[in-house]
Computed example of a mutant assay.
Amino acid sequence: MAVVDSSGVHVRLSAMEVLEAARTMNLPDPRVWVAGDWHGNVGWVQRLLPALGRIDRQIETLLHVGDFWMSTDTVDYWAKRTGIRRVLVTLGNHEPYGTYTPLLAAHPGCAVRVSEVVWLLPRPWQFEIMGRAVVSLGGATSVDREWRQSGVDWWSDEEITDHQVESALPMVADIMLCHESPEGSPVLAAQRAMAANRPLLSESALTSSAKSRERVGRVWRTVRPNLLIHGHLHVSGRGLTSDSREVVALSCDGMRGNIALLDIASLSVQIVDYPS
């Protein structure tokens, strides 16, 4: 959501093709990594993934909550050396939708594998990890889109639609993954970030952003997962609702709090203080 671009946003991607499609998954992992925005930052991934391998090389799955826009060659190379076998990407707003959308559209409702380890997830999508139900609802509004070029570094596909929301409402979830923060988030750091950005933004951007959060909030309130994890605001923090459901925000590349360790059985989240 930050008004200023991250340096890696304009990463150019080589041609992609769908290597595999999956209607759903049931992953066997007792613990997974969850990562916030990377913005195509190759240098960050070259530092972060080896560090994760040193912390726990037994973890094989990384869930990414958007603004990925990565060179898949880079992710494949370092994931293989870290022990990570799969990276599941919940799409954000800063993504090359001109490349991603046709791949997903060719396999409606399916996650698509586009490299050795990288999977792009449709919106919405339901899967399981160790019997826990997970719902992924990607997308968000770019509050800086007025300064971006359509079809180059901004696509209208980023928007969370009413159709996507309606498709998600019947789903069941213990865990919800999204890029956008939900309306009414209990995360104090997220509230402060939105308040700090407000004077810098146009009325149109503020309205679009609020509508995007409302749509995520509608799914969050209806599906009622015990845990929601998101990125987008470039801050890390956590908060509990009055009924003890947790929301966790992850920061972006180059910042502490970009990565978290999620224990599936307990749904406990440890935000990793990297770089320390």
Rank of each mutant, 00 (worst) to 15 (best):
V89D: 14
D73Y: 08
G92I: 04
L48T: 05
M16A: 09
A133P: 03
T99W: 12
W119L: 07
Q46E: 13
Y97G: 08
V18H: 03
G138R: 01
W38T: 09
V45M: 15
W119V: 07
T101H: 14
W69S: 14
T24L: 01
A51I: 01
G83N: 05
A15K: 14
I59C: 02
R54V: 10
R81H: 15
R31A: 12
E128I: 00
V34E: 08
P30C: 04
W33S: 09
G53W: 06
M130L: 11
R54S: 14
T101D: 15
V3H: 13
G139C: 05
L88I: 12
V42H: 13
V11Q: 15
T141V: 06
M25N: 06
V32A: 03
R81K: 15
E128S: 12
E128A: 10
V34T: 02
D29T: 01
N41W: 07
N26V: 03
D76N: 12
G66M: 00
A21V: 00
A35F: 07
V42P: 00
R123A: 11
I84E: 07
W69I: 11
R23A: 15
S115F: 05
G36L: 02
E95K: 03
V65S: 12
H107M: 05
V89P: 13
G139Y: 06
G131K: 04
W125Q: 04
H107G: 08
S14D: 15
A22P: 00
P96V: 02
D5K: 13
S115Y: 05
V87L: 07
G138H: 01
V3M: 15
L62F: 09
T72A: 02
V32T: 05
W33A: 08
V4R: 14
V32W: 04
A2R: 13
R113M: 05
V9F: 11
D5N: 14
W119E: 10
P102S: 09
D29R: 03
G131Q: 10
V87A: 11
G53V: 02
Q46H: 10
F68W: 15
I55D: 11
V112S: 06
S7F: 12
R132E: 02
F127Q: 01
P96A: 10
R86E: 13
H10S: 10
A106K: 12
C110R: 09
S136K: 08
D5W: 06
T99D: 15
A22R: 10
F127V: 00
V75M: 08
Q58Y: 01
P96R: 14
P108S: 04
W38C: 01
A79E: 00
V3S: 11
I59V: 12
L88P: 12
G109E: 11
N93A: 08
T99M: 13
V45G: 08
P108N: 03
S14H: 14
S7R: 12
R81D: 11
H64L: 06
V87S: 06
E20W: 00
R81F: 01
T72P: 09
G66R: 02
E20K: 07
L13C: 02
